[in-house]
């Protein structure tokens, strides 16, 4: 079941660094954008010349009170062209549709100390968390891994507002965030949150686990872009529709293109909402989500339509 959506206009578009662009948006359909909790994301529907893309972006701190939302988008070389479209085609006055905020990376409010770790553009949800904790007068520290200072989005703002709570790691001179060195003797009711490149998230979680930190105290946002692959055909059995999934299109996007309202939420392989039963397949499922267990993957009878694909010709779904 899809959530509420809003028609918005871009009221402000500016570069934050040479490769990160910020968009500010305001509702134009008579609704007011509601307040948001730190760690929330929204889905932007992007009408690129070739196809309709739905990409998730974390809300920046300025969005917490509602009224306007802000996101920051890194220009990447992804095959789908979503970030390129945001950078090249969206400007002040552009209109687009966004989803209601969804939070799959919430602050654990029971924690009495919070360790925030960001790598690169992963700063976006982390900065919102810092702001919420700061306003609430909670104990926190922020570790920010950047290539160099000009490359660190929002760096000056963060340092000005949070002062000594901000710790920097410059990768161009070989600095690296390590749990053992950076976080000795953390009190027992601490929670850690990390967002950044996949490799960095994995390293932080592994380091912390090796030091006896529990999974329950560790939180990560690992948003995946669907990524492309070879085209394949999908048959929606209950709807009696067949459609070809293009090489730059996700399975979910292809299903939506033919007008079928398939369940979904995060569009990044994290929430489990889009899980769909596989009736038949003539190839191997490329599971790219973070939701299904190893056993479920091996069973091969379910697929997360937002990020996963078929390596084969024909997939039949119970939809």
């Amino acid at each position: 079941m899809a959530g509420e959506s809003f028609l918005v206009r871009v009221t402000h578009a500016d570069p934050v660094t040479t490769s990160v662009k910020r968009l500010r948006m305001q509702a134009i359909d008579g609704k007011t954008l509601p307040p948001a909790s730190a760690g929330s994301h929204i889905i932007l529907t992007l009408k690129t010349p070739n196809r309709l893309l739905k990409n998730a972006y974390s809300l920046l701190p300025s969005s917490l009170d509602g009224g306007t939302y802000e996101v920051a988008v890194l220009r990447t070389e992804d095959s789908r062209g979503g970030s390129t479209f945001v950078h090249d085609a969206l400007s002040e006055g552009s209109e687009l549709t966004i989803s209601t905020p969804v939070n799959l990376f919430p602050i654990n409010r029971r924690a009495r100390h919070h360790v925030l770790v960001a790598g690169g553009i992963g700063i976006t949800p982390i900065a919102a968390m810092a702001e919420e904790l700061f306003r609430d007068n909670r104990s926190f520290e922020l570790h920010y891994c950047i290539r160099n200072e000009p490359n660190g989005a929002f760096l000056k703002d963060l340092q000005a507002r949070y002062g000594e709570r901000v710790h920097l790691y410059h990768s161009d001179i070989g600095e690296r965030f390590g749990v053992a060195k950076a976080l000795p003797q953390q009190r027992i009711d601490t929670h850690l949150y990390v967002c950044g490149p996949e490799g960095m998230i994995g390293a932080v979680l592994n380091d912390a686990s090796a030091l006896g930190w529990l999974q329950e105290n560790l939180h990560a946002e690992r948003f995946l872009s669907p990524g492309g692959g070879d085209p394949f055909d999908v048959v929606l059995r209950r709807s009696d529709i067949e459609v070809t999934v293009g090489e730059h299109e996700s399975l979910l996007e292809a299903i939506e293109r033919v007008g079928v309202d398939a369940p979904h939420l995060c569009r990044g392989g994290a929430c489990g909402q889009c899980r769909c039963s596989v009736v038949e397949k003539d190839g191997i499922i490329q599971h790219r989500d973070h939701y299904l267990t190893q056993e479920e993957r091996e069973a091969g009878d379910a697929i997360m339509t937002c990020v996963s694909r078929l390596k084969g010709q024909r997939l039949e779904l119970d939809l």
Binding site: Q186, I188, G212
Partner: peptide, 10 residues
């Protein structure tokens, strides 16, 4: 003792 425990303790 609980008040003085650190992360990683069991």
């Amino acid at each position: 003792h609980l008040k003085r425990l650190h992360m990683g303790a069991q």
